[in-house]
Amino acid sequence: MMIKRRKFLALIPGFVLASSSSILVSLNPKKYLTNRKRSLPFFLGWYDNINNKDVPIKASSKGIDLLMPYVEKESKAKIQAFLDASKKTPIKILLEIPRTLIESENISGVKDFIRTYKNHPSVYAWYLYDEPEIKKPRPISPNLLKKVYKAIKEEDKSKPVALVFTKIEKIEPYSDAMDILMWDCYPCKDGVVEFQWVSFYRKALYEVISLADVKNKKFLNVIQAYRGNQTDFRLPTKLEFRYMFYLSVLAGADGLLFWIHYLSSPSWNESVLYPTIKEFRNYIPAIVRGEDLSNPVQVNNPNIEVKLFPIPNTTKFLIIAVNHTSTKINFVVKLTQSLAGKIVTLNEKTINNLFHNASFSTRLNPYEVKLYQVR
């Protein structure tokens, strides 16, 4: 059971936010990242353990389509059983290479592992190592992981290789040992009040996604979805989870994973995580297609982020609006004239008609996220 994970990072000095061409507010035009190009699949996944072979069927029914099961030192029979259970569902597996093979520099063992499972239909990608930059007593060498990455590609060129990190400033030396960059930061702890962590988390997320952009890596964000048994981590509140979820989407993540299923709470999953997934899943094609830059959005408050996404094969649009402050804000969203005459709905209820000026007024509570449709 892997629960010893350091989740708070030191705030990175010299942080610079990337510019944005999509948020047209006069006070702060460089606050948000540019529109990253994404491609399917956009995964939503759980971390779990290879022994929990009942999880694929349970998770698949809740909109989960990716699992990262910790392999540890389990037998090939248990790995095969988990993969075969996944085969009965649409779920794909980010398969961890046993850490002992990496740590002992057993390149032939790594190649044998890849050959054994590379043709299994459930295997999507290889999970090379978990937080190599903070491995005790010393970090895993970037040169070693580059060597292992090369060995993986010699056996299987078709599947991407993933690495997950917590210390952003340590990532760059590992760039040539991965295709997928993952980042985990779990800011919700006992004694840390709701959203006390938000400024640091947002800046750090923008930093790591900018690095993924520069290095041309797919980016998966790992979001806190657990409470500690013997630690002081708490589950995020519903507002905190939705904020982390949609902040990741708007910032440009190519998928989201949740840590970790066996330390989560069934009631929390049913009331917080799975409803958020259900709400979002229908809009994944719009998110992947990307923001509609031909219809720029203007907002009269610099602390509100609003993005407009065309929904493929329809004449509808998705609007995601996020309040990045601790205060309730009333604001006006102004769209282009090409959308005049349409209506804006929230939870299937009409809230505004876009008359000749193609604008509408709305309100967001502190750190609230709302999804609107323009139809």
Rank of each mutant, 00 (worst) to 15 (best):
S210D: 12
K203G: 08
R289C: 00
F113E: 03
N282C: 07
V322Y: 12
S338M: 06
A321L: 07
N347E: 15
Y367R: 14
P285E: 03
M68L: 14
D184Q: 05
V369Q: 07
K62V: 00
G45K: 01
K30A: 10
P139R: 01
E96V: 12
A253G: 00
E348P: 00
L308M: 02
A125P: 06
Q196F: 11
S104Y: 06
K316W: 05
K147P: 05
K73R: 14
K7W: 12
V369G: 07
F355V: 06
L293W: 06
G255L: 05
L11N: 14
K238Q: 11
F219S: 05
E348V: 01
Y367L: 06
L205K: 11
P69L: 04
N35K: 11
L11A: 15
S264G: 13
R375W: 11
K76D: 15
M244N: 12
L181Q: 03
K146A: 15
S75M: 00
A251K: 02
W197M: 09
L163F: 01
E207T: 15
S210P: 00
D54V: 03
M1C: 09
P98N: 03
N313R: 15
R115C: 00
S60V: 04
L9T: 13
E105C: 03
G341W: 02
S108D: 15
T336Q: 13
P310M: 02
W197N: 07
R115S: 11
E194W: 06
A10L: 13
L205T: 12
K334M: 10
D292W: 11
V332L: 15
I180S: 10
Y246R: 09
S39W: 02
L239W: 13
S338L: 09
V333F: 01
T231Q: 12
A10D: 13
S326P: 05
S75Y: 02
V332G: 03
G290E: 06
R115K: 14
I320E: 08
K150T: 14
L144Q: 05
V198T: 09
D232Y: 08
K342D: 01
Y70C: 00
P296Y: 03
L27N: 12
E103K: 15
L11P: 10
V193T: 13
E169T: 14
P13Y: 05
N28V: 01
F200H: 15
S158D: 11
D130H: 03
P29G: 02
L250R: 04
K87T: 10
N269G: 01
E72W: 12
T345F: 07
